[in-house]
Design a protein around this nucleic acid. Structure first.
Length: 371
DNA sequence: GTCCGGGAGT
DNA sequence: ACTCCCGGAC
């Protein structure tokens, strides 16, 4: 049974007039300057997918670039996957960019270019789960469908004094039930849904909530208890992430200064992105470089750390210059100028590594160059 | 530096 | 229950 399935309904009393107070608050104090038009399913869908992982301020820039590159769902569906990944580069969760692309193709090929108009049918598309499906259906089609993202969980836990651990299956079901029981009539769904998001983002914030600006301050259970920040209760402390280490080989040819980049597999970390070859040890990286051509210089760049959800990666960049003529592109890799590389989907740490100014590699003895 | 938040897919 | 990434808050 999915977490959103009807289970034990929320039986405790709900705050009186919750929806109408929230709708009134949204119309007066909510955000009205967001760039995505709320009746356009393509724009709403695109913004919601981006907002699944990223704050509004960052999404606005990506959204503007995305809609300039791909003004319609047809344009997005027709684009090469690499172009979509390049536009997504830096946002993370790259499987979502691939789902976005697949979803656009399904909408075009099997729905005639129009998004389905119910939350249930939207949720059948790749990358659209129950909450995103409801958001699109509520904004674009006035469907009485409940959302339950992190913002809403926080608002509901605080306002209704829910101190069960989040996220836990039983608590999530309870929150879905509560969210559904609070919904307004259809004509208010857009303002209500936006209001939940706005209240969570601007007033009922994770830290330092602005309770004096909240329409529920008079009866919010967490506020009345004097410690709104205590809720929602986290299930368990995040366990410390194991450390891994990798050598990233920045292979640069002479005399062109081109950089060797490889396309990563479609599954796992950084799926489908272009990245530098990785090795467990410097020695292996040098062996790889020597197979390409004579090594004329090498330099260890400053190591840095990059955090993933469940582990932390220490990257030890190794810059190696080799004498090598670029050959026809092999399927797994290419020699590219940095300006070309910048156009590809690169992991954020690779992007920042390559696009910094870096001095020439150490010890390229002129004698070697003339041999 | 370290921690934290964030939905969907599997 | 676990994987996926990054930026911003502290």
């Amino acid at each position: 049974m999915p977490d959103s399935a009807p289970a034990a309904p929320f039986t405790a009393p709900t705050l009186p007039d919750f929806a109408s107070r929230l709708v009134r608050w949204q119309r007066q104090h909510g955000r009205h300057d967001l760039p995505w038009p709320v009746r356009d399913p393509y724009r709403v869908w695109l913004s919601e997918i981006m907002l699944q992982q990223t704050q509004v301020a960052t999404v606005i820039d990506y959204y503007a670039r995305f809609t300039a590159l791909f003004p319609t769902v047809q344009a997005l569906a027709a684009a090469p996957e690499d172009a979509v990944l390049a536009a997504w580069s830096g946002l993370g969760y790259y499987q979502r960019a691939r789902n976005l692309h697949r979803c656009a193709q399904i909408v075009v090929q099997t729905h005639g270019g129009a998004f389905p108009q119910t939350a249930e049918s939207l949720a059948a598309l790749p990358g659209i789960g129950p909450s995103t499906a409801s958001a699109i259906a509520a904004f674009c089609f006035d469907e009485r469908a409940a959302i339950l993202d992190g913002n809403v969980q926080r608002v509901l836990c605080r306002s209704h004094g829910i101190d069960d651990p989040v996220p836990a299956t039983a608590t999530t079901r309870k929150l879905w039930s509560l969210a559904r029981s609070l919904l307004p009539e259809a004509q208010d769904m857009a303002a209500y849904t936006q209001g939940l998001m706005d209240l969570g983002a601007t007033v009922c914030r994770p830290r330092q909530p602005a309770c004096t600006e909240c329409p529920f301050a008079t009866d919010c259970r967490a506020h009345l208890a004097g410690d709104p920040q205590r809720l929602p209760v986290r299930k368990a402390a995040r366990k410390s992430r194991p450390q891994r280490s990798t050598v990233m080989l920045w292979l640069r040819n002479s005399p062109d200064g081109l950089c060797w980049l490889e396309k990563r597999p479609q599954l796992g970390l950084w799926p489908g992105l272009w990245s530098l070859p990785q090795f467990d040890a410097t020695e292996q990286a040098l062996q790889f470089a020597a197979q390409i051509g004579p090594v004329i210089g090498q330099r260890e760049l400053a190591p840095f750390r990059h955090a993933f959800t469940h582990f932390e990666l220490t990257v030890r960049p190794l810059l190696v210059d080799v004498q090598a003529q670029p050959r026809a592109a092999e399927p797994q890799g290419q020699w590219l100028a940095l300006e070309q590389a910048a156009q590809l989907g690169l992991p954020a740490p690779v992007r920042s590594l390559l696009l910094q100014q870096v001095p020439p590699a150490d010890a390229p003895p002129p004698a070697v160059l003339h041999k």
